[in-house]
């Protein structure tokens, strides 16, 4: 579904990605694990076109989307939920959802404001509240809902558990499972092994801008050496 081949990216003069290669299969949840600064967020931004890739290739649904503009990539069916959430603080919950709305995609049940509320019922009560006056967990739900409004076929979630209470993290895990059941593919970046383990089918470990390990989530849980080498702090 999504195939990234030898992707390189720079921030100014800093070379961040050194040839990331990664494949996300249709209908699966794929987790990208790695320490702070390993290149998880940059990988997602480079896929999304927010950081222009300096070399390599991004293929989505058989199309080459390398170097396209972010809005075209989003319209091709890639949803992106940034780590900082980037809620429009002055817009209400409903208006935030409206910013994400795109045309329905043939063969997919279209997302609507009501369906987002079904997925995250706690948002209903605050539909007229400005996004800036919500808790971190509520903002995380809103930002996921906002991306879903674009009817993506694959959604990239950048560290959705960051800074959230364990109860909310569990709710995120439940939501991700619902999305998977809907047939959505998910690329998840995480440091939280608990969430990763709870939802993921496959895992890749990134370190210093390169993928060091790829396999099934179960295999990773069995491979203590790999976890020790790449993930323990």
């Amino acid at each position: 579904m999504l195939h990234v081949e030898a992707l390189h990216a720079h921030y100014g003069r800093a070379h961040i990605l050194h040839g990331v290669t990664l494949t996300v299969h249709a209908g699966q949840v794929h987790v990208l694990l790695g320490r702070n600064g390993a290149g998880k967020s940059t990988t997602m931004k480079a896929i999304m076109g927010l950081v222009p890739p300096s070399a390599g290739r991004v293929e989505f649904l058989g199309q080459d989307i390398t170097g396209r503009e972010p809005f075209e990539i989003a319209r091709a069916g890639l949803g992106y939920v940034p780590e900082e959430r980037r809620i429009f603080a002055e817009l209400t919950v409903e208006e935030n959802l409206e910013t994400g709305r795109q045309k329905p995609r043939p063969g997919l049940r279209p997302w609507s404001v009501e369906r987002v509320y079904e997925l995250f019922p706690s948002l209903v009560a605050m539909r007229r509240r400005p996004g800036g006056r919500m808790s971190g967990g509520e903002q995380q739900m809103l930002t996921i809902g906002r991306s879903l409004m674009g009817n993506p076929q694959l959604i990239m979630l950048d560290e959705p558990s960051e800074g959230l209470a364990p109860v909310i993290v569990e709710r995120m895990a439940a939501a991700i499972r619902v999305l998977k059941a809907e047939g959505l593919s998910v690329l998840l970046s995480e440091q939280n092994l608990f969430l990763a383990q709870a939802v993921s089918d496959r895992a890749s470990i990134i370190e210093r801008g390169q993928i060091r390990w790829t396999g099934s989530m179960a295999a990773l849980m069995a491979d203590t050496a790999a976890r020790q080498a790449y993930l323990s702090v």
Partner: peptide, 23 residues
């Protein structure tokens, strides 16, 4: 919708682009 998008773009136009809006 135009107005909502304009207000969103005033706050963070890059994010709006990543949501599929043609700036």
């Amino acid at each position: 919708r135009f107005g909502v998008l304009v207000r969103a773009a005033t706050a963070d136009r890059e994010m709006l682009g990543a949501l599929g809006v043609n700036q």
